[in-house]
Nucleic acid binder design. Structure first.
Lengths: 240, 240
DNA sequence: TCGGAAACCATCAATTGTGCCGGTTTTACC
DNA sequence: GGTAAAACCGGCACAATTGATGGTTTCCGA
């Protein structure tokens, strides 16, 4: 197969793309999603778990980690609390499930958008940056943010979160190398650009309040995008 | 006087600097701090309030907003819960107090450090950036982060937080203009640099976990600093 | 088909958090 | 010097949350 082509080519069918995404994502795929293709009991269980995880994400984005209670999640998912206890024995088990699920969904959604429209050269960098900013404004990312902050002060959650983040980071790195072969020989620089994009966009999201969601926010967004392009073009040479 | 020396020099008196800082900070100074100079009863009340606010900040940094309880704060401050209720009738009143106090302390601490060592030209920009990064790694900033995230999903807190943030932003802008007169005629650019610094450093702090506190983190930090310098030197022209 | 496992639900006990009250000591003011 | 106010303390009642138990229905596999 032609290794340099697999990327620019819009791929033949959506199946092929899904397969590619699955191959990339299989490393962090939650068990519940895999079990969606099993039969009745396992499938029902998987569907229920996904429903509960979705409900938990909704609760997280709406009321924050502080406002997250098992009662609220069960109520949002419209199931009894006893049922939820059957699938997630403790609150921590639920939160851990949300961590894995959120990382997975975030990666999946970004890859889906990113692979759909594939431009070439430096324009691809700008487009990827825009897409990342878009992905940061989703429900899943809001939940991720809550968990990331909560993990800073909750030792048990932190342990689980860090492990998941490390797996996610490894996969993300692979994807970046695969998506930007022009940068392949300058790996450190690509990583720097990626790290910068993540940090800056996260901070930008959190600055939405003070910056007022208007022109100021947009200027910072453009600056971030500009910097990433400068990094890509070699105008900012590495190491600094 | 030799302007390049002011940095190493421990300044004449602390009074002169404090007065300058007070003039700048008086706009957001909490009542409790002002009342520190009153007599007995009012002073005792102010001291108690400050003690409680400090205890609340400690609880916030140690257990997060989700783990913040009035019991824990009272226990940390080593006073009875009834006493705390006398000074802060409700939990919300306490949190509101922490918001004001945190903003004030953050500004005060940065200005204190910043005014102490004053270099000139583009070096001042780099130094200010380093100082800001340092200020982001403090206890007060951790508490601020918790409140900022919590405000995203707690309407009542959000209202209070936004108002405080707006006041803080106004003061910060004045300070920037005063501190970087070279930039005075390019106000939009200075504001952009300031907004970028805030957002990027906040994101960087939150990325400490995934980035592992090592070389990767440091590279991003250097990149941020570099961008701000480019902005200052005019190498990145505005508007973008 | 039949025994067992899994999905599902209602409820209880224990803990914790918040707000509010009465009561005591200390300070301020006339 | 005496009265009122404020600083300070302990405890109660109410609500909310978590984990765990008992019991019913539905589905899988031998």
């Amino acid at each position: 197969m032609p290794p340099t082509k697999t990327l620019a080519e819009p791929v033949t069918t959506t199946d092929a793309r899904d397969v590619a995404a699955d191959a990339m994502l299989s490393g962090i795929q939650p068990a519940a999603i895999a079990n969606l293709s099993a039969s009745w009991q396992k499938r029902k269980s998987a569907e229920m778990q996904l429903m509960l995880l979705e409900a938990a994400i909704n609760c997280l984005t709406a009321h924050g980690y502080a406002g997250l209670s098992t009662q609220l999640v069960a109520q949002t998912a419209k199931v009894s609390r006893g049922t939820m206890a059957h699938h997630f024995p403790s609150k921590m088990a639920l939160v851990a499930g949300v961590v894995d699920y959120t990382f997975y969904r975030r990666m999946e959604r970004f890859l889906d958008d990113f692979r759909k429209s594939r431009t070439l050269g430096s324009a691809a960098v700008a487009e990827a940056t825009d897409m990342y900013w878009k992905s940061v404004q989703t429900r899943e990312y809001a939940a991720y943010l809550e968990l990331a902050v909560a993990a800073r002060t909750a030792p048990e959650l932190n342990e689980y979160f860090q492990a998941a983040a490390a797996r996610y980071d490894r996969l993300w790195s692979e994807e970046m190398v695969k998506s930007f072969p022009q940068w392949k020989d300058r790996w450190d620089e690509l990583q720097l650009a990626s790290d910068f994009a993540m940090a800056a966009h996260m901070g930008l999201l959190m600055s939405k309040g003070p910056l007022g969601d208007g022109a100021r926010l947009d200027q910072v967004r453009k600056l971030i995008s500009h910097v990433i392009r400068l990094l890509h073009s070699g105008a900012i040479k590495y190491p600094l």
